[in-house]
Amino acid sequence: MRPTGPLLLMTGLQGLAGGVFVVLAILGFVAAPGFLHSATPGFLALLGLVLVAGGGLASTFHMHRRAAAKFILRRLKSSWLSREVATTAPFGAAAALSVLVSLVHPVAPGLERGLFIATALLGLLAMWVTAMIYATIPAMLSWRTPTTVAAMMGTGLVAGGVWAWALLVVVSRTSDTGLAIALVWALLALAVLKGVQGRVFRRARVQVESGQQMGMPGRRYRLADSGTSRTPYRTQPQVWRPLTDEERQRARGPLAIAAVLTAVLLMASGSSPVAVLAVVTAAAGVYYERWLFFADATHSSSIWLTSGAASPWEPTRKSVP
């Protein structure tokens, strides 16, 4: 699948926003009682709002005919994309309301806390729906697994959490160690999840590359020369040229570094520079995670579409007859 900017941004930002609001909702319960009266929740909500709005904005760039945007909710019954709009929009609205009540027009803390929880729940719902878009496509052999949902939501939550943590550090100049420790554990869990996902991706790739009969029953076939060695079909973004092992490593490396670095930063004593660095590493992590998620995904149709020098063929024959 060809990775495109708007999709990376849209899913990434939405996840970050979700993470921020989940942290906010949790803090509403566990933080010191003064927390809700301080300006901090307002900043967090504002951060979440900016993120979700950014995601929404990015999504419009993925939409190539905005004139038809008005029809987007027509298929709520079946389309996860309709549902994504139908859930991300309320999430955004709730985020906006959160900013309103905590920054501009304070209300009773109970109500505020409830609103944060509702927003976080809406955020989780939106994230889940978004992930379901990907996880429910049988043709996207790499994605059609619950791992997709877990990894996608997990990435958003962890990275959003890191951003929230960083904001707290910047605002309050001290680190919330509990939060930091929780996030490190979450990162660890996420790493395991990504490992599992890597295997799913590999299986999908092998399934296609080893020639699953080219989609035909019976005999095994392989793609014959297609008349070009350039990856064909700029018009079919669901397939992309297969990544080389090198490219895959080149994306995985930064991803791992970002994760480790983020963990290290979380454990370091909270200071503004550390927090800013953590924001950057988390963002980089999200970017690489998402890029790999799209770029390395194998679509069933790639068995017919990618050939040429990009995928040399190894004959099965081992000896000269």
């Binding site: 905005r66 079919q236 669901q238 149709s301 790639s302």
Partner: peptide, 14 residues
């Protein structure tokens, strides 16, 4: 059509 291309992912046949 908004050009979201989701249908292209969904189609197994490219």
């Amino acid at each position: 059509c908004i050009g979201c291309q989701l249908c292209m992912w969904a189609c197994p046949y490219g």
